[in-house]
């Protein structure tokens, strides 16, 4: 095990627990963004070939799209109610 992987793993663990415990919906999205940074870095360090880089980029861009849709829906639901 590497010191780099250990640092990223500790941060990812902390983020997963904080997503579970926070009550506010908008702040959960901020923690989720930080967690997807960590997972994307871990994928690239684990696979260690150019295909792993492609997987990391595709995963990160798609998870950003998903966060965008969730934040848009929170705004719309606030307007309707």
């Amino acid at each position: 095990m590497d010191i780099v992987e250990i640092i990223i793993g500790v941060i990812a663990l902390l983020m997963a627990i904080r997503i579970f415990l926070t009550r506010s919906r908008a702040r959960k999205l901020l923690y989720l963004c930080c967690l997807s940074f960590c997972i994307s870095a871990l994928i690239a360090l684990y696979v260690d070939s150019p295909m792993g880089g492609i997987v990391a980029i595709t995963y990160f861009v798609c998870s950003t799209l998903s966060s965008n849709a969730i934040a848009y829906t929170i705004e719309q639901a606030k307007d309707i109610e």
């Binding site: 989720l32 997987v55 998903s66």
Partner: peptide, 26 residues
């Protein structure tokens, strides 16, 4: 809350993709 359920579902998908990658099914 439904939005909280969807955010937790996103967390589940994060873990699932990580498990798929760790078996090298890229």
């Amino acid at each position: 809350n439904p939005i909280n359920k969807i955010i937790m579902f996103a967390l589940l998908e994060v873990g699932m993709i990580g498990l798929i990658v760790s078996s090298y099914y890229l």
